[in-house]
Design a protein around this nucleic acid. Structure first.
Length: 675
DNA sequence: ACATCTCTAAACATGT
DNA sequence: AACATGTTTAGAGATG
């Protein structure tokens, strides 16, 4: 079996080399394909004066496009740059595709400790959004450039109408614009296929102006440079001031914004204020007297500038000379304004989406606070307590609910460089079972996710074993069947078999709630629900503790082809192709495509609830009756030997002696069972 | 600081 | 002998 081949302990051995290398290769291939031929700077010098404006424009587009691609590629691979990573982690090789998604300032260890799968998804989204934003930023600027040139041509056409039929030029430019948009959409699509970009509602069909933007100041700066570098601003801007004035603000207002303290707009996140400061460096120095919003870390923060200035005085001087009120500065300011507008629009959209998600998940959409720190999901993951505050209603929210709002509709490749993560020592997860939150509902919701993502399920072995047993019609499983359930349900357990199998056996033996029943064929394991309930700590606050998930590896959790097909989402399929196992959003899955899996829930929770208190409102899926109606043990001849404990479960009817062999069959095809 | 839970690892026994 | 199954012990991290 494939499972066996990868047996190694989580702790002792780094991630498998296979996974790393194969992933890296694939990433390379994808990147190369996406880069389309990455000849880099060389092309820039080739421009000769014989090109027609349209050709030149086209060439510039191509050129800039490559720059953008290159940039994205650097983003993807640059994180593993020799200086930063290579030296530090000789033993752990991070797959490129993983590394590129990794948050840069957070150590994998921290990530692992604080992130749950949904949070991972959120993180992924952020990463994707950043990259997407970079790309879109670029596209937008390109489009704007085209626009400016078009206007320039128009102006020129007015002044020299005879030189050429104006219509032709305009047409050409418009075609360029069109091409630009098409190109952008294509590129976005490609990125989506490569798992770099998630599909957001309406995103693919929406014109540039509505594309979401997530800001990464440094990246923005970089893009600014790229754009301005590839674009002869002076030329195209010559007359563009006219166009600027047509916008909501004029150049004077921009200049005012330039030197005057920025107008804070954070108070109205959804507002569409037209006045924005060009300041992009929000990290440091806010409105500190003696500082300047455009000055930070000893350099000018003007978009695309980064000129080093020793002190503020020098900076002001630089500002007045280099960024004085001229067409160029005005244009840049305008672009920046658009950037901010885009961001605000996007913020509004995301905010709306979050509200909807929260509403859907029965959370109180009242507090729109999360927006204040969109990038701090990670920190918010420290949360267990804080999230519980979100559910004061006392409703039994499944663990996913707690985290779901953070997770968007889709999930990208695991940001967490799991290859490093799963080297780490054990991080205890215990959670859902401890509180009213049933493992089954979590499982039901995230079934596909765990099945395909190499993510450690946030459940204890005991709860998983119990779940496995309770899922079966006759509530009993052999050890091997339990193994198979694990591997079938969780990609994570398709490797490291020695470890977790040992743990399973250990748990079976250790916990009284697992009762071994002799059978003809050997022995089966059943669950003594009373014992299981007993085992739980008395204080069930009902507040779901945030699940801390362990990502163990992601690199090579190959997805099943069948599963990929089952995924409706193009993105998901595409991502699956790219060996990004984590992209199946649990939250999205439970809705449509995998509706079939819910019988998983029968246990639901069952659990816990049904016997203790029938309050169990949490999941309507299963009534206690449903739950108990099928409790019977195949055969317990040696029953006397053990004890009478299991009786509570099997007391009712237990004549079903035949062991369904079908289970063995389905184990052969791990995936097909439910979905 | 402590108790408890959980996980991991390992040794060992038994049966096939 | 090899493997599967099962039991037990020990140590460590996480949590309350």
């Amino acid at each position: 079996m494939m499972v066996e081949s990868a047996s190694e302990t989580i702790r002792s051995t780094p991630s498998s080399q296979n996974g790393v290398s194969s992933l890296a290769n694939q990433t390379d291939g994808g990147g190369g394909g996406g880069g389309g031929g990455g000849r880099e700077g060389g092309a820039s010098g080739e421009t000769n004066g014989e090109m027609s404006p349209v050709e030149l424009l086209h060439f510039q587009q191509q050129q800039a496009l490559q720059v953008a691609r290159q940039f994205l590629l650097q983003q993807a691979t640059g994180l593993t740059s020799p200086s930063s990573n290579e030296n530090k982690q000789p033993a752990v090789q991070v797959p490129v595709s993983v590394a590129m998604m990794s948050p840069q300032m957070i150590t994998p260890q921290q990530m692992q400790q604080i992130l749950s799968p949904p949070q991972l998804q959120a993180l992924l989204q952020q990463q994707q959004a950043i990259m997407l934003q970079q790309l879109q930023e670029y596209y937008k600027k390109q489009q704007e450039q085209l626009h400016l040139q078009l206007l320039t041509q128009q102006q020129a056409g007015k002044q020299q109408p005879k030189e050429q039929p104006l219509g032709n030029k305009q047409l050409a430019f418009q075609q360029q614009l069109l091409q630009m948009q098409q190109l952008q959409q294509q590129h976005l699509l490609n990125l989506q296929r490569q798992g770099l970009v998630g599909l957001q509602p309406g995103q693919g069909t929406v014109p540039l102006q509505t594309l979401p933007q997530a800001v990464c100041p440094s990246d923005l700066q970089q893009l600014w440079k790229e754009v301005t570098a590839t674009q002869p601003v002076e030329d195209s801007i010559k007359q563009e001031g006219l166009d600027l004035t047509t916008n909501t603000s004029n150049s004077t207002s921009f200049s005012a914004a330039k030197v005057s303290p920025p107008i804070s707009h954070h108070s109205l996140p959804n507002g569409q204020s037209t006045m924005h400061t060009p300041r992009r460096d929000s990290s440091s120095h806010e409105e500190i007297p003696g500082s300047h919003p455009l000055y930070g870390h000893g350099e000018c923060k003007w978009p695309g500038c980064e000129t080093l200035c020793e002190d503020l005085g020098q900076f002001v001087k630089h500002l007045n000379t280099e960024h004085a009120l001229d067409d160029r500065s005005t244009a840049q300011c305008r672009v920046q304004m658009q950037v901010v507008q885009q961001l605000e629009i996007q913020l509004a959209k995301e905010s709306e989406r979050l509200q909807a998600m929260m509403a859907h998940l029965h959370m109180r959409p009242s507090e729109p606070k999360p927006f204040s720190q969109p990038l701090n999901l990670v920190s918010s993951a420290t949360l267990s307590k804080s999230t519980s505050d979100t559910f004061p209603d006392g409703l039994p929210h499944p663990p996913t609910s707690a985290t779901a709002p953070i997770t968007p509709l889709r999930q990208g490749p695991s940001v967490i460089s799991s290859s490093t993560l799963h080297n780490m020592g054990p991080i205890r997860r215990r959670n859902s079972e401890k509180f009213c939150t049933p493992i089954s509902s979590e499982l039901a919701q995230n079934h596909e996710f765990y099945k395909n993502a190499d993510v450690r399920p946030p459940f204890t072995y005991a709860s998983l074993i119990r779940q496995a047993i309770l899922e079966t019609p006759d509530r009993q499983l052999t050890l091997n069947e339990i193994y198979n359930w694990f591997t079938r349900m969780f990609a994570y357990f398709r490797r490291n078999t020695a470890t977790w199998k040992n743990a399973v056996r250990h748990n079976l033996s250790l916990h009284k709630c697992f009762v071994r029943v002799e059978n003809v064929k050997g022995a089966v394991w059943t669950v003594d629900e009373n014992e299981y309930q007993k085992r739980r700590p008395p204080k069930m606050t009902g507040s779901p503790t945030l699940v801390k998930n362990m990502i163990s590896g992601l690199g090579y959790g190959a997805l099943n082809a069948s599963y990929q097909l089952s995924c409706v989402s193009l993105v998901q399929a595409a991502l699956a192709e790219s060996n990004f196992p984590l992209l199946n959003s649990p939250t999205m899955i439970n809705t449509s495509s995998t509706s079939g899996m819910l019988h998983v829930g029968h246990d639901d929770v069952s659990s816990t609830v049904e016997q203790v208190n029938s309050n169990g409102s949490n999941s309507p899926r299963l009534s206690p009756q449903q739950y108990s109606h099928q409790v019977h043990v195949k055969e317990e001849p040696a029953e006397a030997e053990d004890d009478s404990r299991p009786v509570s479960l099997m007391a009712s009817t237990n004549q079903n002696v035949t062991i369904p062999d079908d289970r063995d069959l389905e184990e052969e095809l791990p995936v097909e069972d439910l979905s």
